[in-house]
Each structure stands twice: as structure tokens, then as C-alpha cells.
Design a protein around this nucleic acid. Sequence first.
DNA 1: ATATAAACATGCATGCATGTATGTAAAATG
DNA 2: CATTTTACATACATGCATGCATGTTTATAT
Lengths: 207, 207
Amino acid sequence: MARRTKEDALTTRSDLLDAAERLFSEKGVSRTSMNQVAEAAGVTRGAIYHHFENKLALIEALMERVRLPVDDMLEELEKTHNDNPLAMLRARCLNIIEQVQQDPHTQALITILLHKCEYVDDALPIHQRHLDGRNACVAESGWLVERAKEQGLIDASLNSQGVILGLFSLVDGLMYNWLLDPSCFNLGQTAKQAIDTYFNGLMKQSA
Amino acid sequence: MARRTKEDALTTRSDLLDAAERLFSEKGVSRTSMNQVAEAAGVTRGAIYHHFENKLALIEALMERVRLPVDDMLEELEKTHNDNPLAMLRARCLNIIEQVQQDPHTQALITILLHKCEYVDDALPIHQRHLDGRNACVAESGWLVERAKEQGLIDASLNSQGVILGLFSLVDGLMYNWLLDPSCFNLGQTAKQAIDTYFNGLMKQSA
DNA sequence: ATATAAACATGCATGCATGTATGTAAAATG
DNA sequence: CATTTTACATACATGCATGCATGTTTATAT
């Protein structure tokens, strides 16, 4: 085939990403060959290697495609709940949950990251990105907890980093288990109750 | 080489499992070939295919090796905390956390299941086993929550299944994040605080 | 208008992973 | 003691998957 216009090239690239997202989330990353992705996108392997250096670059492109919308939403939330740090944290968590539940791209990507890829050495960029994202989130959210302590909203004896780690772990675990079998329980309801329980427990600490 | 005694055969089998556990948890399941496992165990591929039908059977054998000790400990806990259902649930969770932290086999296996293998169709036995285990746990623990409700230990308006799902998700998430980088935070302390927070939040419910 | 480079397709070379079939020597069995 | 089976090793056949090199055609820049 011949050269397409720049616009067509972007379409091809997008088709490749769509195909990869679908196949990866269905069959797993390592069990999906570049050839299969290409065929599913209606092109040959040549097209893939033109747009992406290798499979890893493909996954990184997939991550890039859904990371931005997440960040955008968070900025909006910061304005609405500017006064209450706990409400902001809660809104963030529920927002992520909702996005996983409703946006197919996010859902597929998180499925890939949680269940359909191996965090090995040569996939280190993904691993590192996950870690960095979490750590950045923990650090960024840390001062929210500090503020909540100052305002007397939560028990001052709690370890701030631990509070965040627990909260994020709860969110991660909920997504993890739900994506294992989405028909098993309702994510939104379960997450809301669990997260509220956690926040509720932050206030008075008995032990 | 020649035939070994039955005792030696068990040693070989054990060596193979050890090698698989190590390699899988280091390099991921799909990036580890049967040949590599065999070589690491000091034998050839013939030995592996003699003891295990294929890679999947190998993983299942790995799961079998650590599943039993977990169950044993749970039975003991049921006796000590027979009166307080919440204390029992808490003890179970902390017990799992502690085992992940201290037993290398458990740690390696959970690492494999959470981070180093893909939950794809042909690995369905693992997927199913994970799901079944969780669902059985949820069902089994469900009546503990009901009992806690009856005793007035927790808010009666809470959804019982959701309570359990949230708790288990929290535990899963904590292990997930800790195994992502064990040097990042202390699992035991973080888990204790987070789980206590959750249980604390179950008592009075504002929303 | 021509040269350049983009956007792919095609083919090859290589390497590995799996599965299986077959060989073999010693242990187990009677 | 003879036979059978076990516990492996070895060899072979097959089938991808990857990476690269090399076309081919057309947009695009000058």
C-alpha cells in the first residue's frame, strides 16, 4: 500500500492503539503478538513498527492516552472542595472509581495493568511509572491529611503517609477485585460504602 | 542419567518448584521458559514434563504448596476469638499480612499472582481459583458480619457483603502496593493502622 | 517539478519455546 | 532374579515472534 496523508496516519495509529487495548485486555500482553495487533487494526506489522518502537512503547502510548483525562478531572475537583481536605480526597477516590466504571478506555487500561501484564524487568518503565504515580499521589495527598489533622478532622496520632497508603490501597483493591469479575458486585456502591467507612474510621481512633 | 529413588524424585520435584517460584517471581511467568526452570533446578526439561504436565500445572502446584498452611492458621484463630466476630476478622487479615511479610514462599507466590502472571483465558484455572477463594472467603465471613450486626458491634445499615469486600480489597491493595516495592513502606504497621481504621469506621456510620 | 521523506507492506533470518517421542539405567515389584 | 516401571535425558519437529532490511507508493517541501 501507499503512503497516506498525515491525518490518515493518525487514524492508523489510533486504530492500532484500539486494537492493542482490546487484545491486551482480552488475551494478555505477552500472549498477544504484534502481528495480531496489526491484523486486528487492518494493517501489517510494518505499520506497528513504524508508529511504535516495540510492544513496550505501545503500552506506554496506551497509558499516555488515558492518563491526561484523569489529571484534568482532578484539577476541577480541587476547586470545588477547596476548603475540606477530606472531602477532596474522597472525591478523588470516587472519581477514579467512577472513571474505571464508565470509561471503557480507562477500564481496559487498568485491566491490562492490574491483570494482563507482568511487571518484569524489561517492562520496568510501566512498573516505575506505576510506582512514581503512586508515590507522587501519596506525597501530594500527604499535606491534605496534614491539613485535616490541623483542622481536627482526623485523629492526630495517625501516621499521615499510612492514611494515604491505606486509602489508595483500598481503591486499588476494589478495582482489582471488581475487574477480576465485574459481574460479581457493584463497584460504585461497594466503593462508596468502603471508602466512607474508612474516612469515618479516621475520626476517632480507639487503639 | 539414571533413575533415582522415590525420595530423590520428591527432592527433584521440590527443586523444580523452588526454581519456578524464584524465576517466576523474578522474571514473570511468561518470560520464564520451562528450560530455564529446569536448568535452575539442575535438571533438564525432561524432568519437568515428567513431574508437571505443563507450565500451568507447575503454577497450580506452587499454589498448592502454600495454600494449606494458610488454612491451618485460620482454624486456630477461630478458637481464640470465638466470641468476637470482628476480632476474628481482624486477626485473619493481620494473619495473612504477616504471613506475606514473613514467609518467603507465600511472598513469592503472592508476588507471582499479583504482579508476575497474566490472568488470561488459558490461565483460567488460576483466575478461577483466585475468584473462588475470594468468594468462599466472602461467603464464609459474611455471617461474621451478620453476627457483629446482631451484637450491635457495627452499623446495621451497612451492606454485609460490601463490608467484607471492602475489607478484603483493603488487604489485597495493601499487599499489592507493598509487593510493588517492599522497601517503600512497612507493611505490618501500615496494614495495622489501615485495617483498624476500617474497623473503627464500621461502628458509627454518618452518611 | 523534482527530490525527499513519510507511511506503510513484504520477506527473511534467527532464535526460542513448546510438545512429544524415544532412549536408558536403575529402582521397585513379585 | 526377571520383569516392569520409574525418573529422568536427549533428540526432533513444529510453530511462532521478533527485528531488520528492503521495497513501494504517494504526500509534501522547496
